Computed example of a mutant assay.
Amino acid sequence: MAEIPSLPQRAFVVGAQRREELASAFQSDAESYDKIRPSYPQEALDFTLQHRPATAVDIGCGSGIFTEQLVSAGLEVTAVDPSADMLSVLSKRLPHIEVACAAGEATGLAADSFDLVTYAQAWHWVDHPQASAEAARLLHDGGWLALLWNQLDVTVPWMHRLARIMHAGDVHRPELEPPLGPQFQKPEHGIWHWSMELDFDEIIELTKSRSYYRKSSDTTRAKVEANLAWYWHEHLGHEPDKKVQVPYLTHAWRSRRRPRR
């Protein structure tokens, strides 16, 4: 893998105040988020479900992108998110599943109830020791915790620069393990490369779905959009309506719950 020196040395770790500030960006405008964010590759879903769980709780589910994939795979799924707006979009997509408007650190769900806990694009939004303890509380002995991220593939040089202009904050070094509590075994890792076809308007919408843009001033937003327009049209030479294969990768970790004593 090419060395990308500007990626954070400590992936996933965000201070509590900053985490709360950025996460608040997703309390509204869930429909625009849902329209542009991609689902996860089948290989990542298979990795998550290798141990054939029957029940799952998808925490930080957002608008239900990964939740829907779990449901389609035949699981009985409960969805948890602190944003009522996100859950309203999820409930339109999946009207028959149980939802809870709650944080990952304190879901309010019954203990020892699930085979699988998933966090798709969400583990960096929680306090890791507290969220690990809560996940362990929810799981049966021998249950699994799975963490997944879709991210722009910044090992591709032009994509690296685009991600920096977008201020894509969920781009992590794939070799770094996410922090887990002592309730869980050393995680197993999987990574898959793929691409999503986007035009310039969709690049702008993808940028607008990110916490940095949502929490910025109008002046900063205008600057980001102008920089993207220059890079996409003048530097890369793409026409406005040209569809371009935008490289992505998905990386995931799964960890088994240690037995209760």
Rank of each mutant, 00 (worst) to 15 (best):
T48H: 09
G15T: 12
E98H: 13
R37G: 06
W194V: 01
Q130R: 09
Q151P: 09
R52H: 15
V77M: 02
L198N: 01
G237H: 07
T250R: 00
E68L: 06
S113T: 06
Y40L: 05
G190C: 12
L109Q: 08
D85S: 13
G64F: 10
R19Q: 03
I4F: 03
L152S: 09
A226S: 15
L138Y: 00
A44G: 07
T118W: 03
L162N: 11
A252L: 10
R10A: 11
D241C: 09
L148F: 02
S72K: 15
A102W: 07
T155D: 14
K35Y: 02
R18V: 05
S195A: 12
A54S: 14
R137W: 04
D85A: 15
S88Y: 08
M1D: 13
A25E: 01
V77N: 06
R173P: 06
R258N: 14
T107Y: 11
E234N: 13
A110H: 10
R173D: 15
F114E: 07
V77S: 01
G62A: 03
H193P: 00
G190H: 15
T250E: 05
R37M: 08
H172K: 09
P129K: 01
A133R: 10
K242E: 15
T78P: 05
S63Y: 05
A135F: 01
A135I: 03
R161H: 15
A133M: 03
S39P: 12
D218W: 07
S39C: 09
E205G: 13
D58E: 10
H96S: 15
I97K: 08
R173V: 12
E21T: 12
R137L: 01
K215A: 10
E205F: 05
W232R: 08
I165W: 13
H235G: 00
R37Y: 07
A222W: 09
G64P: 06
I59L: 08
S28A: 12
E3T: 15
L70S: 04
K208F: 00
S24I: 02
S132E: 05
R261F: 09
I65E: 07
A135H: 04
A30D: 02
R258E: 05
L139T: 04
G143E: 04
S217K: 06
R137A: 01
V246F: 06
C61W: 03
I204P: 03
T219P: 01
R10N: 11
V117F: 10
Q50S: 15
T220A: 11
W253I: 02
L45E: 04
A146K: 00
P240W: 04
D46V: 11
G237S: 05
W149E: 11
R93C: 12
A23R: 13
H233I: 10
Q121F: 04
L94E: 11
E98K: 15
D170T: 14
D201Q: 13
A2G: 03
H124G: 03
K208T: 00
L206K: 08
A25Y: 01
I191Y: 00
W125C: 03
Q50I: 13
S113F: 08
P129W: 02
A56W: 10
N227V: 02
Q27C: 01
G108I: 09
G169Q: 12
F47W: 09
G108M: 08
A120H: 08
T107R: 11
F200R: 03
T48P: 11
Y231V: 12
Q121L: 08
K186P: 10
A229W: 10
L94T: 09
